[in-house]
Design a protein around this nucleic acid. Structure first.
Lengths: 316, 316
DNA sequence: TTGCAACATAAGTCATACTTAACCTTTGCC
DNA sequence: GGCAAAGGTTAAGTATGACTTATGTTGCAA
């Protein structure tokens, strides 16, 4: 590796301008400094870059090769710095967002489309996943911010959560649901703890963690045994299974709002209010948000309000 | 433009290694120096490149963008320097050669092929043209060396020729020739000055400069009027026209050696010996030739000897 | 709690990039 | 042919700024 990359800058200008003097002028240094820089560079790579002709520096093959690499880099660097500059005045560049699968699939595309209509210079990268994938990505700087389910973010193997900043932005009702047919055949309006635990369950993970949380919340009991008739790590599949009368599963009510209103899907009510699952906009505590991020975040909150998922601060 | 490109090198290592300390180790400087470099870089571009997390530097979007540009450059630079290094031990890289059209078409491809069989790492760029195009290219460093017809290089508008080094490498016989049929019909063995000037001529340029040179050489007379029945700036076309009995034209004898031997094409003899046109290997006087160039030049001389075009130093 | 690991900060030192000034060489002009 | 101009090189001194050393800070692990 070169000791001093900076001399390449001098080389670049000498090559482009064809003379040390004009390079010196654009670099605001003396011609002598340019000459010395080029010599040092040549010594370092042990190849002449120019043949000294009278009043001219004529590039050698080595010089041409080096320039072929340097020029595009200088150009790219220039545009890169310009866009970074530009992003200070107006939203610009790529936003890398993490989002829960359901939310990302259901709402983000429309929000992104609306945002891009207003700010066409912003592009997006969306990573769908739960907090176990998104939080580490946040920590590694692979995404700029993440929407995560706070409810599920009790897991302590994510490390210290103090380094993150959580802003609740949306709230979803988490319900235990089944199809109308299944309800009439198996639940039969019996919402007792005992009867419900004997149902067929469709689970996201083998340990049925989320369903157990539901029972904990609604009946205050843990250490339950449940019959998981289907385990599948796709929320879409769970919804489909419920619609096909396989059994009961945990859902965000807004995801199936149509079926819900029509009575095709039934949510189990108890004396307790439904679990509210908060989706928080999460980012690194110490990170200085860019203009683009700030603008998008504001936009996101507005859109979420329009959708009707905004955090209901009067609820609890 | 960045004040100090060199700090990008530090940035590159910090980003790659994921920490300032390991970057400092590979750069053989203190951790503090790395930290300061990064801060200066950030100040300069007025965007944070990393968010400071405990014990970690997590790249920001800007950092990612900058790295996306910097990494490929560093990689390319590395391989470029390596190949420049490599070219010191063995022929390597691209050779840019200028050559007269005829010579380049007739002999260079075979020579290049043979050379590449032995040194497959060498590639070629061949520019065909006469000295009025090749010499300026040499001067601008666009070709590494040129083969040029010295005979024609009297033109003083090429500038001072002292900055070039000429090494005669090949010699071609320049003859005034016509087809057998044309000879029998029009020349009729009359090689007198008067009779010859009355022939039909096929010329390369309107002013028939080369043909007039031939008369100057063979009869010592200038200021001649000639009948140019065809002017075409392609040697190939001239040969073809001669073969089709259009008239007389100037040729390098070796180009038509087969027709010559068979008696299909006839060269005009006088009491004077034929004009010898020297092809010289020309390069910038002060240029330090690379190993690749040296090896190829040696190879070229050998091949020219094999072809039988070598300079006959006993001739004059 | 202590020690450690990684980064930030401050101040002083030293390297080196730059300047100034001289010199060399070719070109162009009178 | 002599002289100035233009472009580059060389040499020596200066001054910027990069690096070091030492210290401070902060979370994590033991």
């Amino acid at each position: 590796m070169l000791q001093n990359i900076d001399r390449l800058k001098v080389f670049y200008y000498v090559f482009s301008k064809g003379s040390a003097i004009s390079a010196a002028k654009t670099l605001n240094v003396s011609q002598s400094a340019v000459s010395q820089s080029i010599q040092k560079l040549e010594n370092e790579i042990k190849s002449p870059l120019f043949t000294r002709l009278h009043k001219q520096l004529v590039p050698t093959a080595a010089g041409v090769r080096l320039f072929a690499i340097t020029r595009p880099f200088m150009a790219e660097l220039d545009t890169c710095l310009k866009t970074l500059e530009q992003a200070k005045d107006q939203p610009f560049g790529e936003l890398r967002i993490g989002s829960p699968v359901e939310f990302g699939k259901a709402y983000l595309p429309a929000i992104v489309a609306a945002f891009r209509k207003r700010y066409p210079d912003v592009t997006f990268y969306i990573k769908l996943g739960d907090q176990t994938t998104l939080i580490p990505m946040l920590k590694k700087g692979q995404i700029d911010f993440a929407l995560v389910d706070v409810f599920q973010t009790q897991n302590h193997y994510l490390g210290n959560l103090d380094i993150y900043h959580f802003l609740p932005v949306a709230e979803e009702e988490i319900i235990l649901a089944c199809s109308k047919q299944y309800y009439e055949r198996s639940v039969k309006k019996d919402h007792s703890f005992k009867h419900l635990t004997l149902q067929n369950f469709i689970t996201y993970r083998r340990d049925a963690q989320v369903i157990k949380s539901w029972f904990k919340h609604h009946f205050g009991k843990s250490n339950i045994h449940l019959q998981a008739v289907l385990t599948v790590d796709s929320h879409q599949a769970i919804i489909s299974a419920i619609q096909h009368h396989v059994g009961m599963g945990i859902l965000a009510s807004h995801i199936v709002s149509k079926d819900f209103q029509r009575g095709q899907i039934i949510g189990i009510k108890t004396s307790k209010p439904e679990i509210k699952n908060q989706i928080s906009l999460t980012q690194l505590q110490d990170k200085i948000p860019t203009l683009t991020e700030k603008v998008f975040e504001k936009f996101l909150l507005k859109k979420i309000k329009q959708i009707g998922l905004q955090v209901d601060r009067t609820a609890k």
